[in-house]
Amino acid sequence: MIDAEKLNALVDNELEPAERAEVEKLLASDPNSAARVGAIRAMKTALKDNAEPVRCEDEWKACVKRLNAIDGAKKTRAIVDRWAWAMCSCLFVFIVVGGLFNRVNPGVHAGAADLSRAGMEKPIRDVYHWLKSEIGGTPTVPLQVINAYEGMYRDHRTATIYLKDAKGQVSLVAVQGNGSKVVVDGVTPMDDGQHFVGQNGDKNTIVWMYKGNVLILSGSRSADELLTVANQIQF
């Protein structure tokens, strides 16, 4: 009896010439093995013939779609990889420029909503110097000066001086007119026709004009008391 593996290899044409010759010689005198070879051949043919071709157009289209998605992701990744240094550089430059701009134009964004907190603290001497050159005078104030800030209010440069007496703290904001009209919302004219009164948060506020610039005095005290202080401030 010939080994089954050899018979199968013979059918598959996988025997070396010498081995093949030997098996074929044995087969001539072994009808049982010869019949087995015939059966293996028949089964191989049946398997091949019955393996119907499978329709797979839709499945192939799905594969192509998936490959497209992979290519898309690769492309995006390649762009990010290639330009990551540039994006990081841009961000770095943006931060540096923003920092420098903020240093040169302090408080550009901070002063619009809340005047009392607008700007960057500066030595009082520098603020007075700025007031003299931009507003046209330095104030003589009846209260103790605590600190001073420079900042912005609706595109107008400002200087804020914090003052203090026994009744508490008040702030004096000088808004540079800069040739255009400064609008202060929520104030009404007072009886003297020179001052306006209103509220800045929970504080009373007195507003008046000086050489085309606006002066705003705010504090947690009555409007009359603030008006008294305002009248004592001389430029």
Binding site: N32, A35, A39, L47, N50
Partner: peptide, 23 residues
């Protein structure tokens, strides 16, 4: 056993699904 020799004719009657199931 190795000596069992199948009838080659059985393979002529087979259809795809039968082969698939046997496989």
């Amino acid at each position: 056993p190795e000596e069992d020799v199948p009838d080659r004719a059985i393979f002529d009657h087979l259809v795809g699904t039968e082969v698939e199931e046997a496989l």
